[in-house]
Nucleic acid binder design. Structure first.
Lengths: 108, 108
DNA sequence: AATTGGTATCTTGCATCACAAGGTATCGTG
DNA sequence: CACGATACCTTGTGATGCAAGATACCAATT
């Protein structure tokens, strides 16, 4: 376990979840945020900086599309690099999960 | 899933692991840090503020003990409140784990 | 036509906190 | 006595999640 915890936890989980959602189909921030809010309690204000960072990192690309019910949506699409990052982050996450379970041990 | 992600992730995991270690016996910061470093890559500089916070929160108490090999060690001992917090945090963690696995879905 | 409420974008200020790096002190060994 | 290991702790930095709010579009009610 060489990497810093920060990478595993902070950059890791949220980004990984968003990448996982996008791997099932393009989506826009508001909807992603809603799903994440329901699933893990993420706040809406968190998603936009995160998406911008992921775009800067080349993990996603964007395109605009009319919605018919509100302002146009900015859809995010996974790139090849994004898919690769997703795989790596999942394997990191699984390793982290195992490490934590080991620490918890019989306490669980 | 009402609580903020921050609580689940940041305050959560590290504190939970430390509490779990202490539930198996009193221990001192340097040793805890070593174990955590090996297990999840936590840095040593992280442990001392964390322990102080946990002490302020009444989750642990401390006592000094000579070591024979270096300066005296400050042992931390789990309080009743600490044990209660540990249980709650484990159940939060398990729920979080499940939520993440659900998001990852078949991608895993 | 004006207001409300839901959708959807984004910004700002704040607080938290893990980390790296450094500082201090004790002990045993070469 | 110097060195490395043990063990404590502090400081500064950077990252980032969050709450709150600003902006704007659309549909439906008033």
């Amino acid at each position: 376990m060489a990497e810093s915890l920060q990478i595993q936890l902070k950059k890791g989980v949220l980004e990984m979840c968003v990448l996982a959602l996008l791997s099932k189909g393009d989506n826009y921030a508001y909807d992603i945020a809603s799903r994440m809010a329901e699933a893990v309690g993420m706040g809406e204000g968190t998603i936009y900086p995160l998406m911008r960072r992921m775009q800067n990192d080349g993990l996603v690309t964007t395109y605009l599309q009319e919605s018919g019910s509100g302002p146009p949506r900015k859809y995010y699409k996974l790139t090849k690099a994004g898919a690769t990052a997703l795989k790596a982050q999942i394997s990191d996450w699984v390793a982290f999960e195992i490490a934590v379970r080991k620490i918890l041990g019989e306490v669980t």
